[in-house]
Computed example of a mutant assay.
Amino acid sequence: MAICGSGRGALTIGRSLIGDLGGRAAVAGGLDSARQRGEAAGCVMRVVASGHAPRCAVPDADPAPVGARRSATN
């Protein structure tokens, strides 16, 4: 589950709660990113509500190549 937050303590609690429910948290930015993430989640929910798989809205991607590009540009 993508979460946003700026406070280290709040992120720790959020990760713990998500883990308790069997999920895995991915920090997707600070609080300044929360609105954009919420809108993206709404888009995925509409795809699911219309009877389609969430992968139609968000295809599976390997994050390793993205990390490699970031390292190469720094």
Results as ranks from 00 to 15, higher is better:
residue 5 G to V: 02
residue 40 A to C: 06
residue 44 V to W: 00
residue 32 D to R: 13
residue 37 R to F: 06
residue 27 V to E: 15
residue 20 D to K: 14
residue 4 C to W: 00
residue 71 S to L: 13
residue 47 V to N: 02
residue 63 P to M: 08
residue 48 V to D: 02
residue 58 V to Q: 09
residue 5 G to Q: 03
residue 74 N to P: 05
residue 27 V to I: 15
residue 71 S to F: 05
residue 27 V to F: 04
residue 72 A to R: 07
residue 51 G to K: 03
residue 55 R to G: 09
residue 25 A to Q: 06
residue 11 L to K: 11
residue 15 R to C: 13
residue 73 T to W: 01
residue 71 S to G: 06
residue 48 V to I: 15
residue 10 A to C: 04
residue 42 G to W: 01
residue 26 A to M: 12
residue 51 G to S: 04
residue 54 P to E: 07
residue 66 V to H: 04
residue 6 S to V: 09
residue 12 T to K: 11
residue 70 R to S: 07
residue 42 G to K: 01
residue 47 V to T: 15
residue 63 P to T: 07
residue 54 P to Q: 07
residue 73 T to F: 01
residue 21 L to T: 06
residue 23 G to K: 06
residue 27 V to Y: 03
residue 22 G to H: 10
residue 68 A to R: 11
residue 41 A to C: 10
residue 49 A to M: 07
residue 60 D to N: 07
residue 70 R to F: 10
residue 35 R to Y: 06
residue 68 A to Q: 11
residue 51 G to R: 03
residue 47 V to C: 10
residue 1 M to K: 00
residue 44 V to A: 03
residue 13 I to Y: 08
residue 51 G to T: 04
residue 38 G to A: 09
residue 5 G to F: 02
residue 46 R to D: 13
residue 29 G to Q: 03
residue 33 S to Y: 06
residue 68 A to W: 00
residue 33 S to P: 06
residue 21 L to F: 08
residue 65 P to H: 05
residue 17 L to H: 07
residue 12 T to M: 13
residue 20 D to V: 08
residue 53 A to L: 10
residue 25 A to K: 04
residue 65 P to E: 07
residue 37 R to V: 15
residue 24 R to I: 12
residue 68 A to C: 01
residue 38 G to E: 12
residue 43 C to F: 13
residue 37 R to W: 06
residue 45 M to I: 08
residue 56 C to H: 09
residue 6 S to L: 07
residue 46 R to T: 12
residue 7 G to D: 15
residue 70 R to W: 09
residue 2 A to K: 02
residue 39 E to M: 13
residue 47 V to L: 05
residue 45 M to S: 10
residue 11 L to C: 12
residue 47 V to D: 04
residue 43 C to L: 15
residue 62 D to Y: 00
residue 56 C to A: 12
residue 7 G to R: 09
residue 2 A to M: 03
residue 69 R to V: 03
residue 24 R to E: 15
residue 51 G to P: 02
residue 39 E to Y: 06
residue 53 A to Q: 09
residue 72 A to D: 02
residue 61 A to P: 00
residue 9 G to M: 08
residue 73 T to E: 08
residue 11 L to V: 13
residue 55 R to L: 08
residue 45 M to L: 13
residue 32 D to G: 15
residue 26 A to L: 14
residue 36 Q to N: 12
residue 51 G to V: 03
residue 18 I to Q: 04
residue 15 R to V: 02
residue 72 A to V: 00
residue 44 V to L: 05
residue 52 H to P: 01
residue 6 S to E: 14
residue 66 V to F: 08
residue 72 A to N: 00
residue 29 G to Y: 02
residue 11 L to P: 04
residue 70 R to I: 14
residue 61 A to Q: 11
residue 46 R to E: 15
residue 31 L to K: 09
residue 31 L to N: 14
residue 57 A to G: 14
residue 66 V to A: 13
residue 56 C to D: 13
residue 58 V to T: 14
residue 59 P to D: 05
residue 67 G to C: 08
residue 44 V to I: 14
residue 22 G to T: 10
residue 31 L to E: 14
residue 74 N to E: 10
residue 66 V to I: 12
residue 42 G to E: 14
residue 47 V to Y: 00
residue 38 G to K: 03
residue 42 G to I: 01
residue 7 G to F: 02
residue 6 S to R: 12
residue 20 D to N: 14
residue 58 V to C: 11
residue 1 M to V: 04
residue 7 G to I: 05
residue 50 S to A: 15
